[in-house]
Design a protein around this nucleic acid. Structure first.
Lengths: 343, 343
DNA sequence: TAAAACTATGTTAGCGCTAACATGGTAGCG
DNA sequence: CGCTACCATGTTAGCGCTAACATAGTTTTA
C-alpha cells in the first residue's frame, strides 16, 4: 500500500539511498539535490546546506553510472600505454593522473603490451564508457582504430612522439634524439658504435632513434651495426645485449642502448666482468631515469621530461574540455643530453 | 513524421548507433541483440550470426554505461594502491590486470599517495561506479571507509599484508619478514645494525618490519636504532640514508633498509665514496627487485612474490564473483630470504 | 511602472540498456 | 495425445540520474 510501485515486478534494489530519497528527506525535488552536488552555485546557500546535510546523514553515494547515462558523458579519461614495466610510462601516467584528478576526472588505464590490435580493442571498450577524452601513447594505430577515432568527437591526445596527430599532440622527436646521441658519441671519438634495442617492431620509437643514429653514422662514413634483443627493456636484457656485442663486434668501442634499463644492465654487467667504463667500452642510454644517474660512472643518456609530458598533455586536454581555445595542437617537450662518465 | 519521438525536446543524440537501431536493421528485437552480444549461447546460431554481422556493419559500440545502469553492475574492479612510484605496486597491478582483463573486467586504478583519507574518497567514488569488486593495498582504513565497506556487499580483497581483513586477504607477514632479516644479520655476526626507513607513519608496513627487526635485536640484548627519512623509497633517499648512518652511528656495521630502492641507492653511493660492501658496512633491503640483483655485490634482501600476489588476489576475487565457494579467505604468499654478497 | 532580466526551483521526459515475465513453438515421454 | 519441459524470442518496465523547458518570485532597467 505504501509502495508507490505500479507493478509487482521487482528489480534488484541496491539498498543504497537514491537521489530521490535524499530529495524527499530534504523536502526538495531531485533536480535540486543534483544541482546542490554538481553545480552548487546554482542553488541558494540555505537550500544547499540543508541538502548536503541530508546527503551526509543518509550516507548517499551518487550513482555515477546513472549520471553518466543521463548526461551522455562520464568523467573518465581513457589512458592507453604500451607497457607498465617501463618506468617512463609510469611517470607519464603519474603526471596525467595528478592533473586530471585535481579536476575530478578519473583515469581508465589500459595496457596494450605494445600490441596495436589490443589498442583497438581497448579503445572500443573505453568509448563504450563515454569517456571525456582519450590519451594514448604514440601515433601509430590500426586502420580500424583510426577510423573509429576520426568519427569520435571528443579530445584525443597522442603523447610520447611528435608528428602528424589525429588531434592533440605532446611529445618529442625521437629521430632527433637518436641523432643527438650519435653525434655526441662521434664527438667523443668513438668510431665503432653498436646500437642495441629490443623488439624494435613493437617499440618503434626505439627504432626511430636508431634511424636517427644510423643517419649520423652513415653521414660520417661509418657503419651502423644493430643488435635486436627479443626481451623488452630490463636490466637482464641489457646484460645479454652487452654480451652479444662483445662476441659479435669485439672491436666495438661504444654501445648506444635503446633505453636506460638496457644500458644500466649492461653497465652493471660490464663492471661485474671487471671491465672499465668507458675505457673498455662506452655506454649510452635513453630516458634519463634516476637509476642511470646513481651508478658510477653516471650514465650518459637523454632525459625526456616525462612527468611534465603527462602534466602538459593533461592540461591541454582540460583546456579543450573547458571549451577554451587551444592555441597549439602540437607541443614539442624536447629533450636534454645528459653527459655522464660512461662515454 | 518518420521520427517516432513524441515530444519536440531533443537530447544530445550521440550519432552512435544504438542497440535498437541494430535490432531494427537485423529484424529482431533489442533484447535479442543484447543476448547475442552478452550471452551468445542463449540465441539461435543463425540469428546470432545475422545480428553480429549487423553489429559489424553499423560499427555498433555497446554503451557500457547504459548496460551497467540497467544491470546494476559494471565490469569494473576498483584497485587502490598507495603509490605508483614503487615498482612493487606496479607488479601487483600487472598481475591483477592480466588476470582480470582475461575475464573481461576493467581495472579502475586509484592512487592514495599513502593518504588514508584519499583512500576513502577514492572508494566512495568507485562505489558510485557500481564496481564488481574492490582490491585495496593494506588493512588500515579510516573509520568512515570501514563503515562504508562493511555495508557493501561485493567482494573486497585486501592485499600486501596479512591479518584481520574485511573479507578476502592475500599477503605476507611483514613483522616476520623484519624478524627474518634481523636474524640473518645477527647470524652474520653484525652487532651494530641500524634500520633505515622512510615516512614510516604512512608506509606502516615498513614500520611493521622494523618492529619485527627490533624485537629480534632486543631479544639478543642489542640496541635497535632507527633513522627515518622524509622522502619515500628512492635511490636518492637511500644515498641520504647512508650518509645519515655514517654520521650518526659511525660504528654501525650493517644497515637494514626498508626497501630495495633505499638499499641500492645506499650501496651505489657507498661505492662512489670508495667504501667496500660488506667490508666497511653491510646492506640489506626488502622486496627482491631485479635492480638489487644486478649490482655487485648482489643485494641481500627478501623477495615477495609480487606479480603472484596480484594474480592470486584476482583469482580469488573471480572465484567469488563466479559464486564459487571460497575455501580460504586468507592466503599467505610468504617470502624468501635472498642472501647476496652485500651482507 | 511595465517590461525585461535574472534567480531559485520544479516538471517532464528520456539516456540506452537489461531483468523479469510472457508467449509460442518444438520436442520428449508415458 | 495430453502433459511437462525446454528453447528462442518478444514485451514491458524500469535502472538513477540530468537536459530541457516551465514557472513563480524578485530585481533591474528604461
Amino acid at each position: 500500500m505504501s509502495d508507490k510501485r505500479k507493478s509487482t515486478r521487482r528489480r534488484r534494489g541496491s539498498e543504497q539511498p537514491t537521489l530521490q530519497q535524499v530529495a524527499d528527506a530534504a523536502g526538495v525535488s531531485a533536480i535540486t539535490v543534483s544541482r546542490a552536488l554538481n553545480a552548487p552555485e546554482r542553488v541558494n546557500a540555505a537550500t544547499r546546506i540543508k541538502v548536503l546535510a541530508t546527503v551526509e546523514r543518509l550516507g548517499y553515494v551518487p550513482n555515477l553510472v546513472a549520471g553518466s547515462l543521463a548526461s551522455a558523458r562520464s568523467r573518465f579519461i581513457a589512458v592507453i600505454v604500451p607497457s607498465l614495466a617501463n618506468a617512463v610510462f609510469i611517470e607519464v601516467i603519474h603526471g596525467l593522473q595528478e592533473t586530471f584528478e585535481r579536476e575530478g576526472y578519473q583515469i581508465l588505464l589500459g595496457n596494450t603490451d605494445y600490441d596495436i590490435e589490443r589498442e583497438y580493442q581497448l579503445i572500443r571498450t573505453f568509448l563504450g564508457w563515454s569517456c571525456s577524452a582519450l590519451v594514448t601513447a604514440g601515433l601509430r594505430h590500426s586502420e580500424a582504430c583510426r577510423s573509429l577515432l576520426t568519427h569520435w568527437d571528443k579530445p584525443i591526445m597522442e603523447v610520447m612522439e611528435l608528428g602528424d596527430a589525429l588531434d592533440l599532440n605532446v611529445g618529442l622527436d625521437h629521430h632527433e634524439a637518436g641523432r643527438c646521441m650519435a653525434r655526441h658519441l662521434l664527438a667523443q671519438q668513438y668510431r665503432s658504435v653498436v646500437y642495441v634495442g629490443a623488439c624494435l617492431d613493437r617499440d618503434y620509437r626505439a627504432r626511430m632513434r636508431f634511424e636517427g643514429h644510423r643517419e649520423v653514422l652513415h653521414a660520417a662514413g661509418l657503419e651502423a651495426p644493430m643488435i635486436e634483443l627479443d626481451q623488452l627493456g630490463s636490466l637482464d636484457a641489457g646484460a645479454t645485449g652487452l654480451e652479444r656485442v662483445l662476441s659479435r663486434y669485439p672491436s666495438a668501442d661504444a654501445i648506444h642502448f635503446a633505453n636506460d634499463d638496457l644500458a644500466t644492465g649492461a653497465l652493471l654487467r660490464a663492471q661485474r666482468l671487471g671491465m672499465t667504463i668507458p675505457g673498455d667500452i662506452a655506454i649510452a642510454g635513453f630516458n634519463g631515469l634516476p637509476l642511470g644517474q646513481h651508478v658510477t660512472p653516471r650514465l650518459t643518456t637523454i632525459r625526456s621530461p616525462r612527468e611534465n609530458m603527462g602534466r602538459l598533455a593533461a592540461e591541454e586536454v582540460l583546456k579543450r574540455l573547458d571549451a577554451k581555445r587551444v592555441t597549439r595542437r602540437r607541443h614539442d617537450v624536447g629533450f636534454e643530453l645528459l653527459v655522464g662518465g660512461s662515454t
